[in-house]
Amino acid sequence: MKADTNLSEGSGIPAEARKILTQIETDRAAYKRKLVISFIILAIAMIMVLIALKLDFRFMKNQLPFIFAGMGYTLLVSFMAISLACFLAVVGALGRLSKNPVFNSIASSYVSLIRGTPLLVQVYMWYLALPQIGKALEGYGFTGIQAFFTLPALTAGILALGVCYGAYMTETVRAGIQSIDPGQTEAANALGMTRSQTMKRIIFPQALRVIIPPVSNEFIAMIKDSSLVSLMGVWELSYRAIKMGRRHFQSLEMLITVALIYWMMCILLQYFQEKLETHMARGDRSIR
């Protein structure tokens, strides 16, 4: 951009250099133009494929309100689960970095166990297996605990997703905390801060800038994984789409519809993520 101003001023830049600068500008503009054209062609091709498949667009349009009614559950599950995951991630990361052997081993086992088992199995574990644990506990004299261990589908889904993503995010948060220069901790210590003051005032605010982009990535992934709660009969987006598709033998239409809805949601989130990152990057300039 600096080249531009110099270009118009013509201050001491030799003609051949100016020629090269102009050439670079033209190439860049041409690339952008071609990129937009490719995207448009791709979109047209996709629409043509959909038409060629002889999709029942009217049916899709008619079912749209029914599917959309599941949006609330999808968003509710996602937001509740990501909140739980963030909380677990911070606690887990502190545990993984802790010098307390009990705290540390619990956090490490949590991450290892959850990352080492399929989310699908975990979802069923919370929903179907937990009541059995409750029953076993009642056998040991904890009367009434089984009811407490028998979770509604929505609660089980939120817990399964939150606990699972919390484990992955634990590692993200830990890496973020460890990425902060040890000199920061030393400077805080030299002022006489306690460990928790150092973490709260100095390390965490800086780690947050590092952590936010990967966490928003996790959130986008979670929106899609929230469809797993359909397994327990929660009437969210994908459950409704699958149900309608089966009933009318038009699964293709319904699955494409719901896939597009997820895609649009993710594009929207990605847009906000990019906004957030530019905002963060602006803060970053004041960091280094």
């Binding site: 030393e186 801060m193 960091i287």
Partner: peptide
């Protein structure tokens, strides 16, 4: 540590705070 001030080779100022915030961080916290 409260009675000793320390200056480091790499300064180690807190990058997420302004100059003033850096200076009042110790006294306030």
């Amino acid at each position: 540590r409260k009675r000793t001030g320390m200056c480091f080779q790499a300064f180690n100022l807190f990058p997420h705070m302004t100059v003033l915030e850096n200076i009042i961080e110790g006294p306030v916290t």
